[in-house]
Write a protein that binds this DNA or RNA. Structure first.
Length: 298
DNA sequence: CTCGACTCCTGCTGGC
DNA sequence: TGCCAGCAGGAGTCGA
């Protein structure tokens, strides 16, 4: 489930292969993902040189020569798989080893590969998205922020605009739990379920706390923890859960460092042996799992 | 305006 | 050992 660090990692992988290169071929294998592909996408990609990449929240923007940028969202299951054109597809990477491959029921490696582009240097990039929650669109370069999916998005959490004061202002008056508010991309761009849980844990803030009450000292605690957990994850190459794989096919390592996410019942790293701490708890908020330490998060 | 429920989709997991 | 229900969740949409 790509969140900001995973998108950043994928984007860096793509940039290494595509930046400054010319796209020699592009193809689309179905009419839509979450929404229809823009008309003529394959034709507009073919022959264009890739000038650069940037990221906005969980969106990647690939700038093409000719004044257009490609907007890409990986959704929940999106992967970018890069390989040489003349290379056989590599088997899908199984998180627990190759055991499941032997049963023969697995999809072929290229299943759900909905968009493919190739470069003059012989690279072939496939966008796989089994659940098809991702999307691809075209937007005029320089006007990306006006795109309906980017307009109104909150500050970049790693940027200078994401401050305690800005967060407090965004949360003022909001009666929803802080957990839900941080998932709102209009409050801050790029956080998902995993990093919200991790940041709240680090900041010792209860996920159930009223968003509006996260101001002052609490906001001042939370903002640096959000930045830290994201920066650490990017440095580790993102986290890799289930079907998410980096552009280069290697899996990220950050999931080994989760303090709370998906660790229900395990000891809280912050209170080892504390009799009052019953370990990491799980609760469901707006239909999603939240993991936290009931003793130290208030 | 704000918030929560619902929806999309497929692969993986766990319980029987 | 195999089957299948249930869960996973980003984010737009809609109804209260």
């Amino acid at each position: 489930m790509p969140e900001l660090p995973e998108v950043e990692t994928v984007m860096r992988g793509l940039a290494a292969v595509l930046e400054g290169r010319r796209i020699t071929a592009a193809s689309i294998s179905r009419p839509d993902l979450r929404w229809p592909f823009p008309p003529g996408l394959a034709a507009r990609l073919s022959g264009a040189r890739v000038l650069g990449f940037r990221r906005r929240g969980k969106y990647m923007l690939m700038r093409l020569e000719g004044g257009e940028s490609v907007l890409i969202h990986l959704g929940m299951s999106g992967r970018m798989v890069a390989r040489r054109v003349d290379e056989a597809p590599r088997p899908r990477m199984a998180p627990q080893g190759a055991a499941s491959d032997a049963r023969g029921h697995d999809n072929p490696p290229d299943a759900h590969e909905h968009m493919v582009i190739e470069t003059e240097e012989g690279w072939r990039i496939g966008f796989c998205d089994p659940r098809r929650f991702g999307c691809v669109d075209l937007v005029p370069t320089g006007r990306e922020e006006e795109h309906r999916l980017l307009a109104g998005m909150g500050p970049e959490p790693l940027g200078p605009d994401f401050t305690a004061a800005a967060l407090s202002a965004a949360l003022a008056g909001r009666l929803t739990p802080i957990k839900a508010a941080l998932l709102d991309q209009k409050v801050v761009a790029g956080l998902g379920n995993i990093y919200v849980c991790e940041a709240l844990y680090r900041a010792r803030i209860s996920p159930r706390r009223l968003a509006a009450s996260v101001a002052g000292a609490r906001a001042a605690r939370l903002v640096p923890e959000v930045k830290a957990v994201l920066a650490e994850s990017i440095a580790a190459g993102g986290s890799s859960l289930r079907d998410y794989v980096r552009a280069d096919g290697e899996i990220g390592a950050f999931q080994e460092r989760f303090d709370v996410y998906d660790r229900e019942g395990q000891p809280c790293p912050r209170c080892p042996g504390a009799p009052a701490c019953s370990g990491i708890a799980r609760l469901v908020q707006s239909g999603r799992s939240t993991f936290y330490c009931p003793r130290t998060q208030r």
